[in-house]
Amino acid sequence: MIRPFGFNDIILIAEAIRWTLALSAIAFAGGAVGGLLIALARTSDTRWLRTASMLFIRLFQGTPLLMQLFLVFFGMNIFGLPINPWLAASLALTLHASAFLGEIWRGCIEAVPLGQREAATALGLHYYDRMTSVILPQAARISVAPTVGFLVQLIKGTSLASIIGFTELTRTGQIVNNATFSPFQVFGTVAVFYFILCWPLSLTARRMEIRFSRATTR
């Protein structure tokens, strides 16, 4: 039975924003932890850590996010875990975000001048204090803009989780469309909601980038 697309449908779609946000938040939080570890491994003095983290990054950069979702989703089943879209989507997106944030943050750590590390070392600071007190605070400043930029990509990327049955913004759109068969209005609405989520973030990222490049070319 087909009903017309109406205000209630818009509300229904709007309510699904929270699932998109929840999934983005989980992936971003998990990816921040994973990404920091990957970035530290990439910049470590231990060769096998550098190689292993490099392979991890290449793997996730070199395959489509959709395949990553599929592999985790069906892979979990093979390893005897129950099929659970929440778990699969969270895990796949966390791994994905870890790889990309790891690569972004590696660049930020390497952008801190070598003299900073040398001065800290000469003062007797060990790795942990050197990182937490000297290198990472400076790398963090450089990283804000590209990190927000990646967050936008991540939010848009969560739409692929709809394909493994995770009911977020896009999937809710599909469900509403099945009932109303007004694809243009439905997916137009969905797109507008993504835009409202992402546009302010993109704007912030661009502004921070400009401010940062000004600060560094002084």
Binding site: P113, Q116, A120
Partner: peptide, 27 residues
């Protein structure tokens, strides 16, 4: 052994005082 570099290498995100206190506190 203390070391002074050509490019100063002060920590730009810390104040002068904090620059001087970091190693005594941590090390």
């Amino acid at each position: 052994v203390g070391m002074v570099f050509q490019q100063f290498n002060l920590f730009p995100h810390l104040t002068i005082l904090q620059n001087c206190m970091l190693a005594p506190l941590k090390v």
